[in-house]
Design a protein around this nucleic acid. Structure first.
Length: 260
DNA sequence: ATGCCCACGACACGTGGA
């Protein structure tokens, strides 16, 4: 089963890219971020016509996440538990039947956090605390799950073209990274890092200053696997070619293959 | 050192992204 994450930066603008890529990649489950639309505006029918089930947690203009799956999506949870006052659409979770068991898929769009002297940064860190709490709850079930999405975290200096330029940024600050390690150290496996040891694998290139042409990128989209999911990991990849297409998202799809 | 580009809402440019 192929699980992927893709920050589309507007589903309206990127629907063609997404459907092209779905046909090429044959992904089974995809976590989408930054759909930037309300539930009713999501192109549900077009994706259903390609054989996907759809679950959406949308928001006008900003954020918005969705899950699409060739298998049923059950027990859908929208919104990250832990703060009923949080109105930003950044989290969606569902259970997907997988062989003789189930895979829980958690799609997330972690807050950017810049500027770091603002409440946006404290929101990022507290959001990560809630994600860690959710991971602890799910780990207690001892079932396969994946937390996949745009983490807005550069885990290590190997994951950025120019570490100096990112010093102090909310995506690379030691306290941001420490929270990510706290999550990983619960026992979650970074699918890309488990399959690829070479440095400088990126998932995002800024639109500005020729970042793509210079390969000035960062790795911020991750699939984090529970131990029971990591046991089934057989491959992972980054579909860089999507960044080279006409009118691309600034992120590209990242995927993991799990043997079910 | 700073801005570059892109999407949105709703038509002018401000907000947000990373």
């Amino acid at each position: 089963m192929k699980i992927a994450t893709y920050n589309v930066n507007s589903i309206k603008v990127r629907l063609g890219h997404l459907t092209d890529w779905l046909k090429e990649s044959e992904a089974d489950v995809v976590c989408l971020q930054e759909i930037k639309c309300v539930d009713d505006a999501f192109p549900r029918e077009q994706l259903e016509d390609l054989g996907y089930n759809v679950a959406v947690h949308g928001q006008k203009t900003y954020n918005g996440v969705a899950l699409i799956s060739r298998h049923p999506l059950e027990d859908v949870v929208t919104g990250l538990p832990g703060d009923d006052g949080d109105e930003q659409a950044r989290y969606i979770e569902a259970v997907v039947p997988a062989g003789d068991t189930v895979l829980r898929v958690c799609g997330l769009y972690l807050p950017n956090g810049n500027p770091v002297d603002s409440d946006k940064f404290t929101y990022k860190l507290s959001w990560m605390d809630r994600l860690i709490a959710r991971a602890k709850e799910l780990l207690a079930l001892e079932e396969p799950f994946v937390m996949a999405g745009d983490y807005n975290i550069i885990p290590s200096p190997d994951d950025v073209h120019d570490p100096k330029a990112w010093e102090g940024d909310a995506l690379f600050r030691p306290d941001s990274r420490a929270k990510f390690y706290e999550l990983a150290n619960l026992g979650l496996t970074d699918a890309i890092r488990a399959c690829h040891t070479e440095p400088h694998l990126y998932t995002f290139w800024d639109y500005q200053a020729g970042a793509w042409q210079k390969d000035n990128g960062i790795r911020i989209d991750h699939l984090m696997l529970s131990p029971q999911a990591a046991d089934r990991l057989s491959g992972a990849g980054i579909d860089r070619m999507m960044r080279g297409r006409e009118k691309p998202s600034d992120h590209v799809p990242v995927w993991a293959e799990l043997d079910f």
